[in-house]
Design a protein around this nucleic acid. Sequence first.
DNA 1: CATTTTTACGAAAACGGTTTCGTAAATAAA
DNA 2: TTTATTTACGAAACCGTTTTCGTAAAAATG
Lengths: 336, 336
Amino acid sequence: MKHVTIRALAKELNLSVSTISKALRDSYEISEDTKKRVLALAERLNYMPNPYASSLRGRRSKIIGVVIPEVADSFFSLAINGIESVVKEQGYHVLISLTHERLANEQSILHEFQGGRVDGVLMSVSRETVSGRHIRDLMEKEVPVVFFDRALDEVETDKVVTNDFESGYAATQHLISRGCKQIAYLTISENLSIATRRMEGYLKALADHQLRSSGKNIVQCGTDAAFNYKQVKKLLQRKKRPDGIVASVEKLATPVYQACQELSLSIPGDVKVICFSNLEIATILQPSLTTITQPAFEIGKTAATVLLRALDKKRGKPAQQQVIIPSELIARESSG
Amino acid sequence: MKHVTIRALAKELNLSVSTISKALRDSYEISEDTKKRVLALAERLNYMPNPYASSLRGRRSKIIGVVIPEVADSFFSLAINGIESVVKEQGYHVLISLTHERLANEQSILHEFQGGRVDGVLMSVSRETVSGRHIRDLMEKEVPVVFFDRALDEVETDKVVTNDFESGYAATQHLISRGCKQIAYLTISENLSIATRRMEGYLKALADHQLRSSGKNIVQCGTDAAFNYKQVKKLLQRKKRPDGIVASVEKLATPVYQACQELSLSIPGDVKVICFSNLEIATILQPSLTTITQPAFEIGKTAATVLLRALDKKRGKPAQQQVIIPSELIARESSG
DNA sequence: CATTTTTACGAAAACGGTTTCGTAAATAAA
DNA sequence: TTTATTTACGAAACCGTTTTCGTAAAAATG
């Protein structure tokens, strides 16, 4: 038994294709009796409509494109969970496309989407993304795009983000309140707006508390773990080593912990640490890691909700809202 | 500018729709000159074919369904990476469907797939899945299914798994070689074949080394973190407490570390620990965690390769191979 | 009973590509 | 020069569903 089509049902019941279709969609044009018979047969033959025929005819695929830099990431994978929890309720499916932090990939993915493969897009831009040309091109084809977490300021559309500036500020202030006088900031060299906002928060907090901010205390890390380790180690070997560290992305916690152990520095005794992270395992690090935790699931959920709403109205102006869901500072032992 | 169709190109160049289509697909029937003109116009107007029209006509969607219990999981998210790296090269897309470990969800997802939404399926069964009826139903519709990691023995199809029995054995033997005499085994109560195989490996290793295996040393954990913590704590408070622990799933590392700290037990001094885990952060746990690490990326990659090959032949018998990619034991401090 | 309205259905035209088949014109072979 | 072949293209069917529109028959209305 290959594929059961509407035509097969029609033949079996001596009805027309259109009648079957209407019966399946519970149209008022069809008698209750006929509906029953059609439904029964469909059930019996295990009929499943061909989604592509429907998509073609109806010009909507019931598929949401999720374009992200990486999936093996505690933030993004949780966000996907949030997205999925919302869209599946409305019968939508989730198509994942990974950019691997490359603009070129992002461009070709969005370009392909111009063909109408997805009804809408949820995306977090890659680190390389500075211009929004490819994104606007897609939006001009009437494919709504909603940013989540990593938004591109330049593109005017809905955005669901967290309070990065305030989080950077809060993280820094937290260390200050714990007595830190010289606080270093670890960042991944990139041009993401969320990264700059976090750092601005850091700088503002220093300024507000009359602490000098020095370029030397801002350490540029990269994607290479070995390189990052060396950078952090160098930082901690300075004569005037910092007594506090704000690690602005999750993966930078590792080199900090490793370097401290290597150098026999005590956390939080010699240096207090706070890190932006969603990993639950932060709890069992020794010492447990104080984190700024982003509401990943919530962000995904909200972004999906916003997108579905946009798909509903479609013609109703893009509300172009910006939703901000605050991150949470979870104080643990590493900040003493 | 809404949607550029083949028809629009045809009109613009005073050619027929079929000529355009053939030109775009580089058919030998079309002159080089015409091809050039068509390609140029397509480029200029930013033409993108409607994938659903192609899917409908060609009866293939270029979409691979990935059905997994959970995405916020270090194993599955890495596996997705592996899958994506392979399929995107062949122009396929990845549709993610989450079962959340529920059979009912798994069934409805696969049922929907019977409509032809995906060309093939890569899946890891849910914990609740005991019968393969819904999977066979799908395969009868000629949608190839390849299992990865969590396979269902009962269903005859390609499987890409790791050596769970040997890994359970190796983990246990590792602790034995480190001097452990009484080794506990933590498991999630479930009926997954991979879980039982791991445990069988554990039991075999004990037997091979003349160590008594006691039911009391096999601790059933669940999905509730608090419950698991209590179970582990109770285990470690016994008068004859174990001197080694094999944690058969990643999330069980947390309660072990927490309980040991709470009870002031030293790892690996008082109790040695090994855990099945893919988390890189295992390195910076204190002490660093000895792990059995599954080749998640490789498994995903291989499974995808096998599936694509099956899609190629299609009519060529399902090779029905079983590929085994071994896990790796990474000895760190927790097993002393 | 005559007319209007409602009910229940079918024919056919989309949706946008792909592919088969037919055929003029150009070229090659005889 | 005549016939055979190749080249380059177009018409039309098709994939499976949805939706518009038309219409007999039945029911309601006057």
